[in-house]
Nucleic acid binder design. Sequence first.
DNA 1: ATATTGACTTGGC
DNA 2: TGCCAAGCCAATA
Length: 113
Amino acid sequence: MSQQRYQRIYQTVKYIPPGKVATYGQIADLAGLPNRARLVGKALAESAHNSSIPWHRVVNAKGRISLPQGSAAYLLQQSRLQQEGVVIDNGRSCLADYAWQVSLEDILFKLSY
DNA sequence: ATATTGACTTGGC
DNA sequence: TGCCAAGCCAATA
């Protein structure tokens, strides 16, 4: 059911390693879709049922969970991140500690398909 | 074809 | 830290 139009976004999200987080804007840029952070959120909302997509590793530019505070989805994202070792302080993760940094080496030798 | 809606971002206080 | 106004733009209505 995941729409074909969000394929690039989904593939990019799959590369976020466990224990790390990426921002909506970062995913959009990496997917070749600059200025489309909101589209990433939309794509993830539709991927919630797809277990192969680690949507919980995507947070906003401030490192915070962008879901209604206290909602089921919010709690699920929080617990999944905590399980991976990401400390969540009042809905916020510390980007300085957990931000996913894509290096040139990753692009050339590890993320190749 | 026009208007509204977002799991967003940035910059300024 | 936090709030706000703008800017952004595909998808929906």
